[in-house]
């Protein structure tokens, strides 16, 4: 197991040990007994079986003892779990949106990030929602996981106890690039966190169009470096010559602002040759007219080359 890195890890690991200890004891004792019987009462040595009468005492014994043990396991698991559902009032709320196939984290002051940056030893509450299908935010080192359900808000909380970087994984199957829907949880000292929070950092220097692309997880399907993911790469997009398929007719076009906008609002109408339709949804009502212009402007002025 990873080293536990949250306030819950120790309790969860102890529960594992408690259940495993009892389980391994029973597994070993029962298996050994079984093998011992098989050897001892082998037909060669023991040709005449002895018929044994049923015993109510035995049946009650091996009903009641396991029952007590499993109730203890239940209780232990519940007691450790209960605080996971009670976030303290002073926990820092961070909004999480999961979408195919990326995460965005929004901080109390409105700062957006694609990685979860949190202060050491401070309670954090993740308030989560999904933009499309069910995802599940899983941080193995913190021993926490909760689904992100479209149309409703779910939450979990934790206190990071080790300063390091940890994997964030999606644990609920969400389609093509489910296995690649990953991010990092970066735990830093509180003072660094405060500084990080107010530095607009990458955000301010970067083109607003790029931020729109990032916030909508466009790059989880469209690479910036020319590699082929689910959709065509953004590399050298503006003014590129592309072959598109419209009504089974192949047409040569030069990518301009109109084509970019149309591809965002009505992705299936003009598909680049070699890519499958119906994989991308329309971003009508999600990306505003103004943001569309910013995206086009980004591709004209900066765009990945």
């Amino acid at each position: 197991m990873y080293q536990g890195a949250s306030n819950f890890a120790q309790g969860v690991d102890n529960t594992f040990m408690f259940i495993f200890a009892i389980s391994i004891f029973f597994l070993v004792v029962l298996t050994a007994t079984m093998i011992w019987f098989v050897i001892k009462y082998n037909r060669k040595k023991h040709p005449n079986p002895t018929q044994i009468k049923d015993s109510l005492k035995l049946e009650v014994t091996w009903t009641v003892i396991p029952l007590i043990l499993v109730l203890a396991m239940f209780y232990y698991g519940y007691v450790i779990y209960k605080p996971m559902r009670n976030a303290p009032d002073d926990a820092i709320p961070i909004k999480v949106v999961g979408r195919m196939w990326d995460w965005t984290f929004e901080y109390p002051n409105g700062k957006m990030a694609r990685e979860l940056v949190v202060p050491l030893d401070k309670p954090i509450k993740l308030v989560m929602n999904s933009a499309d299908v069910i995802h599940s935010l899983y941080i193995p080192a913190f021993r926490i996981k909760e689904d992100l359900v479209p149309g409703q808000e779910t939450y979990m909380w934790f206190i990071p106890t080790i300063q390091d970087t940890f994997e964030i994984l999606c644990a609920e199957y969400c389609g093509l690039r489910h296995a690649f829907m990953t991010s990092k949880a970066i735990v830093i000292p509180e003072s660094d966190y405060e500084t990080w929070l107010i530095t607009e950092g990458q955000g301010k220097d970067e083109h607003p169009g790029l931020l729109v692309l990032q916030n909508n997880a466009c790059m989880s399907c469209h690479s910036m470096d020319g590699s082929k993911l689910v959709g065509p790469s953004f590399k050298g997009l503006f003014n590129a010559r592309r072959t598109i398929v419209v009504d089974k007719q192949e047409i040569q076009i030069t990518v301009d602002g109109e084509y970019i906008k149309k591809s965002i609002l009505d992705p299936d109408s003009e598909i680049v040759k070699g890519y499958a339709p119906k994989l991308m949804r329309s971003y009508k009502d999600v990306i505003s007219e103004e943001e569309l212009d910013q995206i086009v402007d980004y591709f004209i002025k900066e765009g990945p080359i």
Partner: peptide, 13 residues
Amino acid sequence: VLGSLATDVHVHD
């Protein structure tokens, strides 16, 4: 392990 709440959360899915 999967029936216990505390441990299931870690190994679920």
